[in-house]
Amino acid sequence: MDLALTILIDGAIYASWLFIVALGLTLIFGVLKILNIAHGSFYAIGAYAAASIVGLFAAEKFAPAFSLVALLLAAVAVAVIVGPLLERLLLRRFYGRDEVLLVLVTYALFLILEDVSKLIWGVNPYYVTEPYGLFGDVSLGSLFYVGYDLAIVAVALICGVGVWYGLNRTVLGKIVLAVIHNDEIAASMGINIGKVYLGAFTFGVFLAALGGAFTAPMISVQPGISVGVIIVSFAVVIIGGLGSIGGAAIGALIVGVARSTAVHIWPAAELFSIYLVMAAVLIFRPEGLFQRAVARRI
């Protein structure tokens, strides 16, 4: 019983930051129709930026609680700087091109950002320790958890509900939904597609960086973290169905639980449990769990 609970809670913790990252990925896909490999790099840059800003705050002798503000600040900074720059200078040139070609564009971007972050932050690992102890330890029955890990679950819930509310209950959200559904018709109704693309991409970058910033205290921030994240978050959105928020949540939970099951029961399978689940889902639901079938007009 304890084992099952452990697996579930571990799975939920893993799923939570993954969901934040995947949410950005699925949003960018929904609006811009780009499956963004560089999303993993935004995650990594978010983590690095968090390390820098938390370090800066610590050097200025700010109270430890401010380190949480530092994490958020890092994500915002990355989004505001990286998002518009890339969208305006690069992605804009490729809109409407073949999906696979767009994947390659972002693959090129991923390669570039890998080295750029090495140039900025070097190759030695960073540890962001300050925020991790803020919430103490929490006991759930006989199990003990670091409070920070559980706080991440709350952050993920806030992100999910926030994005859902923003999309479905606000005018801006309706505009974005219209663009997701059919950007040509949206444009003909007077919506400024360019702005929506820019906004959605920047927000997607923000979510990736936020995921990176909030996981930074849980990991050692070093080159290579982007690769692992991108593959796993791809698995999440593919399992859930591209462009679906609910799908991203379910996909993250499935991946999280699959991984923690493997870790606790069959550690050797940790590495590929995620791919196995993704392959299994795709075999039975070729377009993911929550993808609507699109009828072709002939």
Binding site: F234, L271, Y275
Partner: peptide, 17 residues
């Protein structure tokens, strides 16, 4: 397209694992 790319990717990574 993407689904083919991802499924082949998954298979190769399963073998890697």
């Amino acid at each position: 397209s993407i689904f083919f790319a991802m499924l082949t990717l998954a298979l190769s990574m399963v073998l890697y694992g």
